[in-house]
Simulated scan of single mutants.
Amino acid sequence: MSAQTAEKLAYMVNQIARNMALDDHPVASVADHVTAFWTPVMIDMLLAQDSASLDPVAADALKRIAEGRIPAPQNSATDPAVHGSDAG
């Protein structure tokens, strides 16, 4: 997709952030909206973009989305629930 499309996505997520600014939990509301209604391709494009053009609420929502996109284990050999984790 083009740079113009990425700019449009940034514009859209900023609009969503402004509309949800008065919610009790605006960052969570924006993150929930984006994950519920946007395609994975749209989200990936936005995550790949520099967050300087984003409203602070939108930027925090995207950080929250990115943190939740940890891939699931591919098989039992990579599943910490099966083998535990060496992380302290």
Score class of each variant (00 low, 15 high):
19 N>Q: 11
58 A>H: 00
67 E>D: 11
77 A>L: 05
72 A>V: 08
66 A>M: 02
39 T>L: 08
48 A>L: 14
12 M>K: 15
61 A>H: 01
12 M>H: 14
16 I>N: 03
88 G>Q: 10
17 A>W: 06
69 R>G: 02
10 A>P: 03
85 S>G: 11
64 R>V: 06
70 I>L: 09
71 P>F: 05
71 P>T: 13
10 A>S: 07
70 I>Y: 07
53 S>A: 15
20 M>E: 12
75 N>C: 08
1 M>V: 13
11 Y>T: 12
81 A>K: 05
85 S>Q: 07
39 T>S: 12
32 D>C: 04
40 P>L: 09
11 Y>L: 12
76 S>R: 10
12 M>D: 09
47 L>C: 04
82 V>L: 05
81 A>R: 13
20 M>H: 10
83 H>Y: 14
31 A>E: 12
74 Q>R: 15
52 A>D: 08
28 A>M: 12
27 V>R: 08
57 V>T: 11
44 D>H: 05
16 I>V: 09
64 R>D: 14
72 A>R: 06
69 R>V: 00
53 S>V: 09
3 A>T: 04
59 A>P: 02
71 P>W: 01
44 D>F: 10
42 M>P: 01
10 A>Q: 12
35 T>Y: 10
45 M>H: 08
4 Q>N: 11
2 S>Y: 00
36 A>E: 14
29 S>F: 07
80 P>S: 02
29 S>Q: 08
21 A>N: 04
50 D>C: 06
78 T>D: 15
25 H>G: 09
30 V>A: 07
67 E>K: 08
20 M>I: 09
6 A>L: 00
62 L>C: 03
41 V>D: 14
76 S>K: 06
22 L>Q: 15
48 A>I: 08
16 I>Y: 03
78 T>F: 13
74 Q>S: 12
12 M>R: 07
11 Y>E: 10
60 D>V: 03
82 V>R: 01
74 Q>G: 13
24 D>Y: 08
30 V>G: 07
49 Q>E: 13
29 S>H: 04
45 M>P: 01
2 S>H: 01
39 T>A: 09
26 P>R: 03
56 P>Q: 00
65 I>V: 04
